[in-house]
């Protein structure tokens, strides 16, 4: 149900943008909505992070995934069980950049010699491919928002297109992004476990991103738009001198509208894992809680059963067994 709902939602969004351009609302779809979406994105993002920040981390609860630092002759697993800030940074870098935890994923395989645990890296591979390519695609789009285009953006473009296939040359990341997003979607549909846990909120961003990638690819290779005019528009946005040149095809406005929706939707959805991954107390704390005291700002005052109360209750039996007592 969630899947159908999300698919329809994205189709409706595409239709809205298409109809919008047919009605010559390009000012709305080319300027007003993108600005608004970006504003919502930034404000919502900040608000959410601050909201998280307002809750303290009362206890020191890293999940340790390797040998602790203890005796000097025992080899510590520094990245999976960090004990210093530097090691935590290392762990976080592995987590954020290489998806260390997903890399651990395991599944059993049945062999003739008996069952063995094997690694199961498809989710890791799909996830990493999806995120890395999405990031590169995002960065590549800076060519529409900078003038002159910085050399490193051009270089990224060249690296991305270095197989030099097709005209204009095919960008690997675009294709991989689409493929990876499709994999993640199919996995949600056909893996019975994942299908069971999936909500509309899981399908919607996937459909949205697939829609964005598809319109982007269509625009680059098939339904061309005048790229110079597109850049006129985007540069207008970046310099706060918004203009909407005539003659940019609907496909561009659909692309832009879907992106706007993604931006606006971002802070209110699971996509906030982008910020959340940095703040997860099971990952971003050093496992040094016995060496350095962690402070709980709301450490509660609690009612205790003191030794005195205890001895008062059991003094006689303690004495009879020769256990020392405070008061005779």
């Amino acid at each position: 149900m969630g899947m159908i709902f999300s698919l329809i939602a994205v189709i409706v969004l595409v239709a809205v943008a298409f109809v919008g351009t047919q009605l010559h609302l390009s000012g709305l779809f080319g300027v007003a909505i993108p600005y608004l979406a970006f504003l919502v994105f930034i404000a919502g993002f900040v608000r959410k992070v601050i909201k998280w920040g307002q809750s303290p981390v009362p206890f020191h609860i890293p999940t340790t995934c390797g040998q602790q630092k203890s005796l000097p002759w025992i080899k510590q697993s520094k990245l999976d069980n960090p004990s210093t800030t530097l090691q935590v940074i290392g762990r976080m870098a592995l987590e954020v950049l290489l998806f260390r935890s997903l890399f651990r994923n395991i599944k059993t395989h049945r062999t003739d010699g008996g069952p063995v645990y094997g690694s199961n890296k498809w989710l890791w591979l799909g996830g990493l491919a999806f995120h890395v390519t999405f990031f590169v695609v995002f960065i590549r789009h800076l060519r529409f928002f900078t003038e002159p285009v910085p050399a490193w953006v051009n270089m990224l473009d060249a690296v991305d297109g270095f197989v030099q296939v097709g005209v204009p040359h095919m960008l690997i990341t675009g294709v991989v992004l689409l493929a990876a997003a499709t994999y993640l979607l199919l996995r949600r549909i056909f893996n019975s476990q994942v299908q069971y846990i999936s909500l509309a909120a899981d399908y919607f961003p996937l459909f949205l991103i697939i829609g964005i990638a598809l319109t982007g690819i269509l625009m680059r290779y098939f339904i061309k738009v005048d790229i110079v005019k597109v850049k006129e528009l985007t540069m207008g946005l970046a310099t706060f001198k918004a203009t909407v040149p005539d003659g940019i095809g609907s496909i561009f406005f659909i692309h832009l509208f879907l992106i706007s929706v993604l931006f606006a939707y971002f802070p209110f959805s699971k996509l906030m894992h982008l910020a959340g991954v940095f703040m997860s107390p099971t990952r971003n704390l050093a496992n040094n809680s016995r060496a350095v005291r962690h402070i709980n700002p709301w450490n509660p005052k609690v009612h205790l059963h003191t030794y005195e109360e205890y001895e008062d209750e059991f003094r006689e039996v303690m004495k009879s067994e020769g256990i020392p007592v405070e008061k005779e």
Binding site: V46, F145, T146, E147, M235, A238, T239, A275, F278
Partner: peptide, 21 residues
Amino acid sequence: GLIIFIALVTFPFYTNMGKTS
């Protein structure tokens, strides 16, 4: 962290500050 994030996503705005494309 937030400042870094905002600096990254608003890159197009401040690099083009005052420029006319």
